[in-house]
Amino acid sequence: MKHIAAPLLALTLFAAPVAAQEEDDGGFNLMEEGARLFFRGLMSEMEPALEDLEDLAREMRPQLQAFMTEMGPALRDILEEVEDWSVYEPPEILPNGDIIIRRKTPPEDEEPLPENGEIEL
């Protein structure tokens, strides 16, 4: 009986790290499964909103196509004309329906460049 106990004890000691490695792999599989379930739940929650968005896009498609047919050439001309959009304020619609895009004013603490373009140091 003592002869069987020694090899059995040795096998138990060597099997412990193997069992720990299997548990680590199992933990990773549990993490994967948890992430999978999380994203599946997220998608099921988002599905109605995505369907509403698709319906809205379907409804707006004819109006957007008409807008691009009418305004596309004018917008292309404006895009060719303006070099840097960052120097303009966002468009503003006036009560009479006019749309203005104002140039941003430079900060007051900045001095404008001299007319000859040279800066004296």
Rank of each mutant, 00 (worst) to 15 (best):
G97C: 07
Q21G: 05
A16R: 01
G41Q: 06
D52C: 10
E89V: 03
P17E: 06
A57C: 10
R36K: 14
R76V: 15
E59M: 11
F39A: 00
L113I: 05
G34T: 01
A74N: 12
P7N: 03
M68H: 15
R36G: 05
M46H: 08
I78P: 00
L79T: 10
L79R: 11
W85M: 04
I4C: 03
P112E: 13
I101N: 03
M1P: 03
R40K: 13
I101R: 05
M43N: 09
V18L: 12
L56Y: 09
P73N: 02
G27H: 07
E51V: 09
D24I: 15
L11F: 00
L11C: 09
G26V: 06
E83V: 12
G41K: 12
P107S: 04
I119D: 01
A6C: 10
V82C: 02
E22C: 09
A57H: 07
D25W: 14
R36P: 02
Q21S: 02
R103W: 06
D98F: 14
L50F: 14
R36E: 00
R102V: 03
P7I: 07
E80F: 04
M1Y: 02
A15R: 00
E47R: 08
L53V: 12
E47H: 11
K2I: 09
K2Y: 05
L64V: 08
R61P: 01
A66M: 06
F67D: 05
E81A: 10
S44I: 01
E70H: 15
D84Q: 01
E47F: 07
P95Y: 01
E47L: 13
L113N: 06
A15E: 08
E89G: 07
A6I: 11
T105Q: 14
E110G: 04
R61N: 10
A15T: 03
A19M: 10
L13W: 10
L75H: 03
L56H: 06
D98V: 03
D98N: 14
E23M: 13
R61G: 07
E81N: 09
L37Y: 10
N116G: 00
M31F: 12
L37N: 14
L75T: 02
L79Q: 14
L121G: 12
M1D: 08
K104W: 06
L79C: 14
L53S: 15
L37D: 00
A15F: 00
E47I: 05
D98E: 15
L13G: 03
E23S: 11
T69M: 11
P112N: 05
E54T: 10
Y88P: 00
R40E: 08
P91F: 01
D25E: 14
L8K: 05
V82M: 00
R103P: 04
F39T: 05
G34P: 04
I93K: 11
M1L: 13
V18D: 04
E83W: 09
S44N: 07
P48R: 02
D77K: 15
M68P: 02
M46F: 12
M31W: 15
L13H: 08
L56A: 13
E89N: 06
M71Q: 13
P106C: 06
R76A: 15
E110N: 12
D84Y: 04
A74R: 13
A19K: 05
D52P: 01
V18N: 05
L8E: 03
A19E: 12
E111W: 10
L113W: 01
A35S: 09
G41T: 06
S86H: 06
E51F: 08
F14I: 09
Q63A: 15
I119Q: 01
A20Q: 08
K104I: 07
P114M: 00
I100Y: 04
Q63T: 08
